[in-house]
Design a protein around this nucleic acid. Sequence first.
DNA 1: TTAATATCTGATCATATGTTCATATATAAT
DNA 2: ATTATATATGAACATATGATCAGATATTAA
Lengths: 117, 117
Amino acid sequence: MADDDRCQCRIIHEERVDGARRMAPDAAEIERVAYFFKALADTTRLRIILALAHGEMCVCDLAAFLDVSESAVSHQLRQLRQLQLVTNRRQGPVLYYRLLDDHVSRVADMALQHIRE
Amino acid sequence: MADDDRCQCRIIHEERVDGARRMAPDAAEIERVAYFFKALADTTRLRIILALAHGEMCVCDLAAFLDVSESAVSHQLRQLRQLQLVTNRRQGPVLYYRLLDDHVSRVADMALQHIRE
DNA sequence: TTAATATCTGATCATATGTTCATATATAAT
DNA sequence: ATTATATATGAACATATGATCAGATATTAA
């Protein structure tokens, strides 16, 4: 188990470990950030977010664009909704989805720049 | 299967679907970005990156800071290495890890700001 | 060379996750 | 009311993934 495997050695830089502990965000924040990144860590959701960055689309549009089933899109949109990344407005039977704010797309763009560097 | 479930309806906004297709990064880029975000989508790796943003640490330090086994840290560091997010220098038997550049930590900081908003 | 420390690696296992399928809900039209 | 369209949802299944365990490698000291 982890205890047996854990470092029995002197800790090389105790002050760095303490420093890291002091600087680190608390566990709750870390988890929320990890969930945020999970939203972007799937190609389907990532493409949804990048597409919605240019304007709202309905589920039907997204399914056509992504070339996946509407059910799959709907499941992913639910996740993005729960994470407060997208929202929708209804017009008749059609739901138009859009980004809730531009934070996500800005982060996604930064990542794109990074891998293109 | 997906074909049966796919949208048989008129595509609500054909020009939007085409627009999204034109604006979208190609599949290879999308995948690389998704992998980049996957690196940040796990609390252990996220904490490693945030810690290394303040300076290099050895595996031993990281295991102590994270309170996980050294084996687990080593596995995660390998992933981060393969993704070109961290690198290391050897000093005797000790490997000191550091971020390869500050892109990752800047993205992580943006995400932190986002969830704190 | 032998022993000890620091790290790595492959296999395994349990959990998480994305898609599919079948079905349900909601709105609009007939 | 009935039918059709648009979307949502739950269960099931197959794959991906993170941690653990056992053992390997690399460096240093004795």
